[in-house]
């Protein structure tokens, strides 16, 4: 088995006495698509927020490629190859689509204008937004803004991408396109996917981690999770 790209050990976070995440361990293997599921309020977003560095854990450690990044600020984690797409679309609304992607690419490519332009064109083509390059990001449809989020992630050429509910609010046809996109991305990138749509999860995930009341309830392949009675009781049954 490969050494994990990202490990979390004993992560805890409380908000005003309320336990959001408690003693969570997580290991992501390079190249896998890992789905993180659980009922609303199970602590999924809190967990990934700690992984990317948006909030600090009360206790626990996070390792990226074996190096402790628990105390690194978010931007330093991104520089080490992590990328994050927001649950609530967070693009630069008043900037053009291409500038959104260019900002993501430029951090890596610097002042080399030709390289940035090439990367922007490549990524926009990959997500199917080439025709929208010159429009203001805020004028895009909701589905296209979600794709732009993915494009901004791709332009960073990350080794690990965290996607927080990427299909939320998308139409059926858009979800299908999104599935194809994630599969293509996963060829050279590890993916941690928070997702409510079980069809998407079952189709994409190599492994699934189930979170309930801030703790890991179960972990395994989609088949194992589907068959797990505790998961059915806590989550699938209730859904």
């Amino acid at each position: 088995m490969n050494a994990p790209i990202l490990s979390a050990r004993g992560l805890c976070k409380s908000f005003g006495g309320l336990r959001a995440v408690h003693e969570v361990d997580l290991d992501l293997v390079p190249g896998e698509v890992r789905a993180l599921i659980g009922p609303n309020g199970a602590g999924k977003t809190t967990l990934v927020s700690m992984l990317i560095g948006r909030i600090a854990p009360d206790a626990g450690r996070i390792l990226l490629d074996g190096a402790d990044i628990t105390r690194l600020p978010a931007h330093a984690r991104v520089r080490r190859g992590m990328a994050y797409s927001f649950q609530i679309t967070s693009v630069f609304q008043r900037l053009p689509v291409e500038e959104n992607v260019a900002l993501a690419a430029r951090r890596r490519l610097g002042r080399d204008r030709a390289a940035v332009a090439g990367e922007v064109a490549r990524v926009l083509a990959e997500v199917g937004l080439s025709a929208e390059a010159g429009r203001m990001a805020g004028d895009l449809s909701y589905g296209h803004q979600r794709l732009l989020e993915i494009a901004m992630g791709l332009a960073q050429r990350p080794r690990l991408m965290i996607l927080d509910e990427p299909t939320q609010g998308l139409a059926e046809a858009e979800v299908a396109g999104f599935r194809r996109l994630v599969r293509a991305i996963s060829a050279d990138c590890t993916i941690l996917l928070i997702e409510h749509n079980m069809d998407v999860v079952m189709a994409l995930a190599d492994r699934i981690t189930v979170l309930d009341f801030g703790e890991v309830l179960a972990e395994g392949t989609p088949e194992q999770i589907r068959a797990d009675p505790a998961v059915q009781a806590a989550y699938l049954g209730a859904a």
């Binding site: 948006r54 990328a83 927001f86 967070s90 693009v91 900037l95 260019a102």
Partner: peptide, 18 residues
Amino acid sequence: RVLVAIRENEERARLLGY
């Protein structure tokens, strides 16, 4: 351009690695 990005959405700029 990064300054403009900060003006428009600082959190997003930070999570692009700036």
